[in-house]
Amino acid sequence: MSFNIVVLAKQVPDTRNVGKDAMKADGTVNRSALAAIYNPEDLNALEQALRLKSKIGDATVQVLTMGPARAAEIIRESMYRGADGGFLLSGREFAGSDTLATSYALAAAIRKMGKVDLILSGRQAIDGDTAQVGPQVAEKLGFPQITYAEEIIDLDKDSITVRRRLERGVEIVRGPLPILVTVNGSAAPCRPRHAKLTLKYKNAKTISEQQTSSSDYTDTYHTYIIPEWGAGDIEHEPQWLGLSGSPTKVKQIENVVFTAKESKQLTAVDADIEELMKELIANHTIG
């Protein structure tokens, strides 16, 4: 019987590269200047899934993502990196979800996917850095969890052994299947597998993308269709989705703007550095 792995992945704005270009004159972020990328640690999770697949042979890797229509890109990217397929969970019912409402929806979608042996996800997403969705999905499904995984050391038919990278150390733990594992950024990076796959899945589309596609010649027979699920496709109670399913409310958002100081400008010439060191010694900052 095939071993079924689900990878949870998220499309995120590239907050790591909020450089000068992405800052407006008033010090606020120009969000449209940020690229939408595959959340980095979710790629580490995908890599672990693909390694297990090549080790076990009889395994499938499905990627589940929740987001707007353009998040179908996550499924495409996963597939040309070697995933077998994926699902896009999308719809206005999910809008305004905090981590709990998100995990409720993801858990419902996973139940619909059938027998799952292992769920992998990144430790956290770079837009929120909360690290909450993985454990919350595990709780909703009644699965145990292993967070901060750096390497899956061993897998047999009923257990998984994982090396965890903690703040101040390392732990090797074994847990029963099915289980949810969140993968750390220190785990192996994800490399695309085959150029052929890249070509094959470049044109993978959701039905709604196909309908809005500018090309009239889209050949459905040769295009992989990415399944798109809305709220109606998963078993749920409406009050647990989106805003109403989110116990946390945002009271206020402030842009962070730091007040500039008047700085003394120096160069790397010897005289400047010596003067500075003398000053720091004289005012007891150092020494």
Binding site: I126, T248, K249, K251, Q252, E254
Partner: peptide
Amino acid sequence: YQIRPAFGGNIVATIVNPD
């Protein structure tokens, strides 16, 4: 009031759990 940075630290959000 649970005050935390978000979005790579470019905003600071005040979060509440009313209910």
